[in-house]
């Protein structure tokens, strides 16, 4: 879809956690502000606002990105998943990564947690059975000021154990499949 440019406003039409949303916003609106302020989904946090901390991580078309460093307009036509959308069913249960944070005490204040969960979901989609080094490399774009990371790494390990083979991928990662035809050397 092509957002209609109208002066400095744009109409952004996208799907968030499975729901269609259309809003007209200033073009400079960042995706994180669109999600938090326009849609009221405040589970996605703003930590640094400088692309360093990862607290704002959401999935765009199934791939984790930092929503403080993407225009809402750039996400037009995309499917967004925020932390509010990861739990299965009507939101009663927990995503395996959320459950693992609970089990392993992977959070203290919880500020970094939504972004950590999104980052680890991405890590496990790419590397279902990661080593500790791979886990730390995977979350190197996410900062935590409380835990010292030990229990976050333990949570990622635990989620990998419980979800290997069983974890759903409700929204496919298009870069896993569509890069091949469009992107691969022919």
């Amino acid at each position: 879809m092509d957002p209609a440019a109208n002066g400095t406003d744009v109409t952004v039409d996208l799907k968030v956690n499975g729901r269609h949303e259309t809003r007209t916003v200033p073009a400079r609106t960042l995706l994180v502000h669109f999600v938090r302020d326009r849609l009221g989904l405040t589970g996605t946090h703003v930590g640094c606002d400088t692309t360093q901390c990862g607290a704002c991580t959401v999935e765009v078309d199934g791939v984790a990105v930092k929503s403080c460093t993407m225009l809402a307009a750039q996400a037009g036509g995309c499917e967004i998943t925020t932390i509010e959308g990861v739990a299965p069913g009507d939101g009663d249960g927990l995503d395996p990564v959320q459950q693992a944070f609970w089990d392993e005490h992977g959070l203290q204040c919880g500020f970094c947690t939504p972004g950590m969960v999104m980052a680890i979901r991405q890590l496990l989609r790419d590397t279902p059975v990661p080593t500790n080094d791979e886990i730390r490399h995977g979350i190197s774009g996410n900062l935590c000021r409380c835990t010292g990371y030990q229990n976050i790494v333990a949570a990622a390990r635990s989620a990998a154990r419980t979800s290997t083979g069983t974890r759903r991928s409700s929204r496919a990662d298009p870069s896993a499949t569509s890069t091949a035809p469009a992107g691969e050397v022919s």
């Binding site: 692309t51 990862g54 991580t57 791939v63 984790a64 990105v65 930092k66 460093t69 993407m70 980052a119 991405q122 890590l123 790419d126 490399h137 995977g138 190197s140 774009g141 996410n142 870069s175």
Partner: peptide, 12 residues
């Protein structure tokens, strides 16, 4: 590629 930024930045 592996050592550029982080996985979220590499996705964009």
């Amino acid at each position: 590629l592996e050592v550029i930024a982080d996985q979220q930045v590499r996705a964009r």
